[in-house]
Write a protein that binds this DNA or RNA. Structure first.
Lengths: 160, 160
DNA sequence: TCATAATCGTTAGCTTTGAAACGATAATAG
DNA sequence: CTATTATCGTTTCAAAGCTAACGATTATGA
């Protein structure tokens, strides 16, 4: 990669005893790929319904699990509970979900998908899935299995 | 993975002719790893100087290249030019960089690192690099090379 | 030359994001 | 049985982030 090489040269002047170039490459390319993925999906798929990546991932959870506690949504999406609270507000305004307080433990709030929300997902998911397939289409099935396996290890070992 | 399997079962009911499970796994794990990476770095390293991941990546570019056009910063960080404008304001307020208009083409604005900005990077980069190494430490060097290579292909083929 | 088009960065208005503080509720301890 | 702790979700406030519109500048073309 052109940019990567140039950067490494400049980094030589950095006050570092030893540079682990392979680690740098993994982190750089990992984040760039994820960022590109998100941007592409928001632009080409999710903008149809005015949804952000995180909003979609929440609707997705609700679609799969019917009803999910706020805390689990935050954990699943990798964002703070404050963010979930805000996004839930937006989704509620769009009538795609609603809140439901647990009667047994009134501290817990469940978020539930509405019929309208389900329809949106039934329209959106096939398009999203086509996007997923397209993004990784330059990798063979075996390569997809390899990269998933390696990423899973990173996720597991870091408790991501 | 426990959650992944359960999800796939639920997805069977989805209105999709054919599900490419390997593509789903790549996208899911790719995004989760990147999200975890960002959160960890912001929490454990960048919070020392009150910097976001994107702010840091901009300072990093300036550190390497001395002076960069706003447009290239947006491209490099994978965010919109409006975001760069906002972040540059914040960084300027912290006296970590300043703007400089090109005399030949007065539409172009360069962002330049200050001495204070350089000092911050000299303090921060070693810590950041230790974080990078730590995050991927469960992968062997060969595995790191493999995953970088596969990610690079995804990036290239999608113009990310 | 001068009008039109293209490019660049900022602004406006909104949603997303997180840390910290806050209220409400439940669990625990004495 | 009360008092203390712990947990949960929301609110507050600031920064990050996007789209679209805008003003300023440069390039193009007739």
């Amino acid at each position: 990669m052109p940019e990567e090489k140039e950067t490494i040269n400049k980094l030589a002047k950095a006050p570092i005893e030893s540079l682990h170039l392979d680690s740098i490459a993994v982190v750089t390319n990992l984040y760039r790929a994820a960022q590109g993925l998100r941007n592409k999906m928001e632009r080409e798929v999710l903008s149809d319904h005015g949804l952000s990546w995180t909003s979609f991932s929440i609707l997705y959870d609700l679609w799969i699990w019917e009803s999910v506690e706020t805390k689990k949504l935050a954990l699943s999406a990798g964002v703070s509970k404050a963010t979930i609270s805000n996004i839930t507000n937006t989704l509620e305004r769009k009538e795609l979900c609603y809140r439901k307080i647990d009667n047994r433990d009134r501290r817990i709030t469940y978020v539930v998908l509405t019929d309208k929300g389900r329809k949106v997902m039934e329209d959106l998911y096939p398009k999203f899935h086509r996007g997923e397939v397209e993004v990784v289409s330059s990798l063979s099935i075996d390569e997809q299995k390899v990269i998933s396996s390696l990423l899973r290890r990173v996720i597991r070992e870091n408790n991501f």
